[in-house]
Design a protein around this nucleic acid. Structure first.
Length: 206
DNA sequence: CTCCCGATAT
DNA sequence: ATATCAGGAG
């Protein structure tokens, strides 16, 4: 796939940029990353996981204290409640393990398809199309899709991207979205895939 | 569709 | 000073 080959030369090893040492830590970090950046989440998770070194610690955390611990990632009241309830549910129904499928993962509080796909890709090694804001923006700009609905975008991308490239494609969208195809001022002139980009074409026409 | 919220780019 | 960024639940 052209876009993947081209971007891989620029970002040789695109991977999840969230810091974690255990599967459930990735889940918690990803829940915290909703409407926040990986960078901001990474600033608090090392301390957080040190203070709460197990799912039991998170499940039994004082809610107000937990809120303070994660405050800087934003939406902290929802997220504190979500990670606490998710920790409880993982202990009660899954023996502290993570479900290995989208259906069960998305029953966890604060876990939608994006977060579930991050777990499937990074914990279980299942090729997964992860539609976050970057994947959505780039896929629309390039012209792979024309939709604002993440679920529809995921379905469309699954038809366009070769299955074995789902995860690397998703990560490349994030890397390129952060470095070049930014939300605010995209650096279209230095973009290595502007030759196949609808957004670039429509701009240079002006 | 609205609400949830802090951090950062402009 | 404020618009913009970044997912999920109800």
């Amino acid at each position: 796939m052209y876009v993947v080959e081209k971007l891989l030369k620029l970002y040789p090893d695109p991977k999840c940029t969230l810091k974690y040492n255990k599967p459930y830590e990735l889940l918690i970090a990803t829940i915290l990353a909703a409407q926040s950046t990986d960078e901001r989440v990474n600033k608090i998770t090392p301390k957080l996981f040190k203070k709460y070194p197990s799912l039991e610690h998170i499940a039994n955390a004082d809610l107000e204290e937990l809120e303070e611990d994660i405050k800087s990632v934003g939406f902290y009241k929802n997220k504190a409640k979500n990670i606490k309830e998710t920790a409880k549910l993982l202990l009660e129904k899954y023996n502290g393990m993570l479900p290995d499928n989208i259906e069960e993962l998305t029953t966890l509080k604060g876990v939608g398809r994006k977060t579930a796909n991050v777990v499937m890709a990074n914990i279980y090694g299942v090729p997964s199309v992860i539609v976050d804001t970057h994947c959505m923006r780039l896929s629309n700009r390039i012209g792979f899709v024309s939709s604002k609905d993440p679920d529809k975008i995921e379905i469309e991308l699954r038809k366009i991207v070769p299955r074995d490239m789902y995860t690397v494609f998703s990560n490349l969208m994030v890397y390129h979205g952060r470095a070049v195809c930014k939300a605010r001022k995209p650096k279209c002139n230095e973009c290595v895939i502007n030759n196949v980009c609808d957004f670039y074409s429509s701009q240079s026409d002006l």
